[in-house]
């Protein structure tokens, strides 16, 4: 199915060109290049400290690059360099055409306001001014992420970890973004909740034709969700390819180690 999508849309959505980031003498990210096409799910895997999260922040424009550039094809079809966007444009992009799912839902949610307002916030930020319609859209999204609509007026403080993460996903998807960044979306959840969340994510991604960059250290997540995998080590991309290919037939010694370190079920 992914291959069909790739054929349909031959223009990349996000292009990273020789990205690097250094903190003083420490190079957190070195010479990363890739293209992401609409509807494609790219997993970035690697151990802690390999530069995955730095790369995600560079891609989403939250961190200034030390070298290289990121360009994004906007909704009007023009591909633009993220660094050249004004702050207002970048923030608008972040609220509308992009989503960012944090590992810790408390970072991505407003814990003190109700679930409905959490989902509706992006809509209100782009000028929705009709309470009934905002609420309708919020309940629709809660249903889609399998949260009981009766809990729409409860604050996420009262939610379980899995519900919070699903709420965070709903909050990000409500404006119909084309690209979603995810930073360890299943980290910190127990295994059965993880499985449900992954199942939900996989369906949503396919249904909405989302492009996703997902950072994870969990190879099972990469296998379930992604079409392509990039393996990082020491700030470099050491191996990249189709998920099945990389995970079933790893070429680099490090990738082999990574794959073989999964406990057999």
């Amino acid at each position: 199915m992914a291959d069909q999508d790739l054929l349909e849309t031959d223009q990349p959505l996000l292009v990273a060109n020789a990205l690097s980031k250094s903190y003083g003498r420490i190079a957190a990210c070195r010479d990363v290049s890739f293209s992401l096409y609409p509807g494609e799910v790219l997993a970035i895997v690697g151990e802690s400290g390999s530069g995955k999260s730095t790369l995600l922040q560079l891609l989403s424009g939250q961190l200034a690059t030390s070298g290289g550039q990121v360009s994004y094809r906007m909704r009007d079809g023009v591909t633009r360099d993220l660094a050249a966007l004004g702050e207002a444009e970048r923030r608008l992009l972040f609220r509308t055409d992009w989503g960012f799912v944090h590992q810790d839902p408390a970072q991505g949610l407003r814990m003190a306001v109700s679930a409905g307002a959490n989902v509706g916030e992006r809509l209100m930020a782009v000028g929705w001014n009709h309470y009934g319609r905002i609420r309708e859209s919020a309940s629709d999204w809660l249903t889609r992420v399998e949260i009981d609509v009766a809990r729409i007026d409860d604050a996420p403080r009262t939610y379980s970890g899995g519900m919070r993460q699903r709420l965070q996903i709903a909050r990000n998807l409500v404006t119909g973004p084309r690209l979603v960044f995810m930073d360890e979306p299943t980290g910190g959840l127990d295994v059965s909740v993880q499985a449900r969340l992954l199942d939900l994510l996989r369906n949503l991604v396919a249904e909405l034709h989302l492009a996703v960059v997902i950072v994870t250290h969990d190879l099972a997540v990469a296998r379930l969700l992604s079409h392509r995998v990039m393996v990082m080590k020491g700030g470099r991309v050491i191996e990249t390819g189709l998920t099945d290919q990389v995970l079933d037939d790893p070429r680099e010694p490090y990738t082999q180690l990574l794959v073989s370190s999964i406990l057999p079920p």
Binding site: R95, V113, M124
Partner: peptide, 9 residues
């Protein structure tokens, strides 16, 4: 947008 979040609440 945040101001409307308060009114929504």
């Amino acid at each position: 947008g945040l101001m409307h979040v308060k009114l929504y609440e």
